[in-house]
Structure formats: structure tokens, C-alpha cells
Design a protein around this nucleic acid. Structure first.
Length: 273
DNA sequence: ACTTCTACCTGAGCGC
DNA sequence: TGCGCTCAGGTAGAAG
């Protein structure tokens, strides 16, 4: 569920709860979510470790540990990291619990169980998805020229292209639709048919919608919440996502929803060409 | 190599 | 109320 702005909000809200805290014990309830090492070694190696920071890359979180190891986390569709007082009941759908020094514990909850975690350290293990991430939307490396070059020789639809995490890190279905609306480009357009001008508009659109999402602490529709259980308020500012059949905020035309690259996609038939 | 489809899960919302 | 169906903010791997 969470895309870049939501994951960034999780990162920020997590910091005061875990930095400086020691992991006294780890309980893994859903072994398949641990990518590396095996769940027993995972829990054992984390025991006694201390959190020193939290970083984000695309939709991945890196929970940094003293000594250089770090915990790679991807929330996928419905994952959440929640910090709660020890005397409070564990949240529903808890898949993993970190019992910390101090007054709180950290819970990895996940309804659909797609979320994953891994311990990354000296043993050289790498996560493929993480390693192949493209540039961050707000970094200077994301330019129209870069996108055009990456699209060279491809014929795929632009919606699928910008959802590809190796092209741009962090866009998901919401912000992809929003970026395409901002750029005036239909999600079904083929990347080999986009003009330079459109690549420019798309680059600006991606930056703008991600920036806006960050400002509003992310978008919440159903499951997403930050480490304090708070919701983002960006949904109020969305132009197309979840607005099928409603009038375009720019021109009044009724917004359409179609399936593109396997994902529900909303667009304005008048504003997007 | 590229593109599209399917699977992985659970729950919410819809029509009947 | 309840059943069956579709859809959901993601991505890896298979199939074409």
C-alpha cells in the first residue's frame, strides 16, 4: 500500500521511538516474511542490537543498527510498523514483534502478509529489488533525458514504465496516476511515442506529486498509518486517484477508470492526451 | 531482452 | 443476512 511519501512518513515517525533502543528479543510469527537469514538466525542476530537510525530508499526502509548491520523492510501492500507502549495490547495482524529497551515495543503488522524483512550485514546477502532501484524522484538524477534514455527501445505503456522501481524508485499506483494527470499524459500512451516535451512534463509531474505527498504526510485510504498510528491527509489533494466518475478538478469532464499494466488507472479524457 | 500475466494473501464493498 | 464476485496503495517470477 505505501508509496514513497507514506514510507518516508513511517521513517520520520519511527525515529523517536527506536533510535537508541536495544532489541531485547524478537518474535517472528510469520517466518516466510524473513528473506534472510533463516528466521531463527534472524531473531538471534538481532537480539542485543541497538538501533542507530532509519533511512529510506524508494519504498524500502533501512533500520540501522550499531556495528553497521541494518534491517531491510518493505511494507508492500498492507504492512505497518507500529510503536506501542508495552502495557498495551499487541495490534491486530502482528507478524513480528521487537521487544525493546524502554517503554515501547515495535510491531510489524500486515493484513495481507506480503511485507518482508531481511538482516543485511557482512555476509554479503543482497536484495535484488533494492539493488536495482532507480533514482529517487526528488534527486537531480531524475531528469527527462534520463527517462527518455531508459525508455529507448521499449514499447510498454507509460503507466507501467513509471511504476517500474528500477526506472524511478518509489512511485506506486496513486502517485503514478497523479503524475500522469499533472503531465497531461494518458496512462495508456506507449513510451516510444512520447515527445521530449512530454518527458519534461512527466518529470516535473512526478516531482510535484511526490513533493505534495510528502508535505501532507502521505495518502491514507484504508490501511496506511505511520509509527504512531496516524494517517496522512494527502487524499484530500488528489486530482484523479480514487475519483472515478467524478468531475475533473481542472475541466469538469467526468474521470474515467480503466485497467492499465494490471492496475486500476483513473484519468481525465479531456486533460490527458 | 522485452512485455504481460499470475500468484502471493486478507478484507471491504458491491450486486443479487 | 449472506453468498459470490471484484478489487485493493506491490512485486517476483513465469509465460508468451
Amino acid at each position: 500500500m505505501p508509496e514513497l511519501p507514506e514510507v518516508e512518513q513511517v521513517r520520520i515517525s519511527l525515529l523517536p521511538h527506536i533510535v537508541g533502543k536495544t532489541i531485547e528479543k524478537v518474535r517472528v510469527d510469520l517466518p516466510k516474511m524473513i528473506l534472510h537469514p533463516d528466521p531463527d538466525a534472524f531473531a538471534r542476530r538481532l537480539q542485543g542490537a541497538r538501533f542507530t537510525g532509519v533511512r529510506r530508499r524508494g519504498k524500502y526502509l533501512g533500520l540501522e543498527l550499531e556495528g553497521g548491520d541494518w534491517l531491510l523492510v518493505h511494507l508492500r501492500m498492507t504492512g505497518a510498523l507500529l510503536a506501542l507502549p508495552k502495557d498495551q495490547q499487541e495490534p491486530p495482524y502482528t507478524r513480528m514483534a521487537f521487544f525493546l529497551s524502554g517503554r515501547e515495543n515495535l510491531y510489524f503488522t500486515d493484513i495481507r502478509t506480503f511485507g518482508v524483512a531481511a538482516l543485511v550485514g557482512e555476509d554479503g546477502w543482497r536484495d535484488k529489488g533494492y539493488e536495482s532501484l532507480g533514482p529517487e524522484p526528488l534527486e537531480p538524477a531524475l531528469t527527462a533525458e534520463y527517462l527518455r534514455a531508459r525508455a529507448k527501445g521499449k514499447t510498454t505503456v507509460v503507466k507501467g514504465f513509471i511504476l517500474d522501481q528500477s526506472v524511478i524508485a518509489g512511485l506506486g499506483n496513486i502517485y503514478a496516476d497523479e503524475a500522469l494527470f499533472a503531465a497531461g499524459i494518458r496512462p495508456t500512451r506507449r513510451v516510444n511515442r512520447l515527445t521530449r516535451k512530454e518527458w519534461e512534463a512527466l518529470t516535473l509531474g512526478v516531482r510535484a506529486v511526490i513533493h505534495q505527498g510528502l508535505e501532507h504526510h502521505g495518502t491514507t485510504f484504508r490501511n496506511y498509518q505511520d509509527a504512531d498510528g496516524k494517517m496522512g491527509d494527502n487524499s484530500r489533494y488528489l486530482q484523479v486517484y480514487h475519483r472515478k466518475g467524478l468531475p475533473c478538478r481542472r475541466c469538469g469532464t467526468l474521470l474515467k477508470q480503466i485497467k492499465v499494466a494490471g492496475r486500476g488507472s483513473v484519468y481525465c479524457p479531456h486533460c490527458q492526451k
